[in-house]
Design a protein around this nucleic acid. Structure first.
Lengths: 156, 156
DNA sequence: ACGCAAATGCAACTCATTCGCATTTAGAAC
DNA sequence: GTTCTAAATGCGAATGAGTTGCATTTGCGT
C-alpha cells in the first residue's frame, strides 16, 4: 500500500484501519491544509487497488479532529473545510480576494495575552468568563498580480 | 411597509426596490451579523403582506457586498455566511466552541502594519507583493458555562 | 406616462457534508 | 491462531446552503 507499515508510529487510542493510515499518510505528506475532496482523491491515488468512500474520509477526519490529530479551518470566502495535521504549531495566511492565492505568514504576531485581558482595558468584552484556547487570523487583500486590476478599496 | 420612505438616505448607485430597502432596514436594525436565512425571515416579517424570495435575498446581499454596503464573514466551525452593514468599523469575537456563543471584543489589537512588514523581519512570507486591505481575527475557546464540562485542552 | 435594463419569483439544480443501514474488520480475549 | 464484538466502512439517499435559468415585474431615466 504505502510506506507506513509499522503502526507503532501512529497516535494511539483509535483503531488504525488501512483507510485511516492512508488518510494520515496523505495529511503528513501535505504541505498545506487539504479539503476532504482532495484527501479523498489523494488517498484513492495512494491506495491504487481499492478506493475509499468519500463519506468514510469525512468520518475519519471527524474522528481525527476529535482526537486532536488534525485541525480544521476554512479559507476566507470559501465554504469548504480544510484539514491539516496538528503539528504543534500554526500558520496564518494572507488571502488574495481575487485569485485566492494564499501566502503563509511567518510566526504569530500576537500572543493570547493581548486579547485575554482586554476586558480590563476598555470596558465591555467580558473575557474574564472565557477560556481562550486558540485563535485564527487572516489577512485579505490583493496579491501582486491581481492588485493591478483593482482600484483602491479602503476597507480596513 | 416600514419606516424608511425617503430614499435619499440610501447609498446611491443601485436601484432601490422595496426588497432592497427592506433588507437594508433589517441589516441596520441588526446588532450582529445575520445569515441570509435570518434576513429572509426578518424581512418577510417586516413586509407583512408579501414575502420575498430567498434567492432574491441572496442576490441582494451579493449586490450590497459588491457595492461595499455590507460585509460578509463566517463564524468559526460554522459554514453559513453572515452579513452586516459596513459601518466603517469592525468587531472581532471570541467564539465558544461548545455553545457557539460569541463575545464581542473591544477594539482591534493590532494594526495592519504589524503584519504588512513582517516579511522583512524573519525570512519567508513575501508580503511585499501583497496589498492588505483587511483582516479577520477570531479567538476560540470555552465560555464560562461550558468550560466546566471540558477537560484541559492544550491546543495553542 | 413610456420603455427598457435591471430586479424578482419560482423551481430546478449544484455541491459539500451527513446519515441510515447492511457488511466488513481491527484487535482484544481466548 | 481462532473467535467474537464493537467499531469502521461502503453505498446510496438525504440535507441544506447557496446558485441559476427564465418568464414576469418594476425602478427610474427620459
Amino acid at each position: 500500500m504505502g510506506a507506513n507499515q509499522n503502526m507503532t508510529e501512529y497516535p494511539q487510542g483509535i483503531k488504525w484501519t488501512k483507510q485511516r493510515k492512508c488518510v494520515y499518510q496523505v495529511l503528513s505528506d501535505a504541505t498545506e491544509p487539504l479539503s476532504a475532496q482532495q484527501i479523498y482523491m489523494l488517498a484513492g491515488q495512494m491506495a491504487q487497488n481499492d478506493t475509499y468512500a468519500l463519506s468514510t474520509i469525512y468520518r475519519i477526519l471527524a474522528t481525527f479532529e476529535e482526537n486532536g490529530i488534525v485541525n480544521s479551518t476554512t479559507w476566507m470566502g470559501d465554504d469548504t473545510v480544510v484539514y491539516e495535521l496538528e503539528r504543534g504549531e500554526h500558520t496564518h495566511y494572507a488571502v488574495c480576494l481575487d485569485c485566492r492565492k494564499r501566502i503563509p505568514l511567518q510566526g504569530c504576531p500576537f500572543t493570547i495575552g493581548h486579547f485575554g485581558h482586554r476586558h480590563g482595558d476598555d470596558g465591555e468584552g467580558e473575557l474574564s468568563d472565557f477560556t481562550v484556547i486558540g485563535h485564527k487570523i487572516e489577512l485579505y487583500g490583493y496579491c501582486d498580480a491581481c492588485s493591478a486590476n483593482h482600484v483602491n478599496n479602503t476597507d480596513l
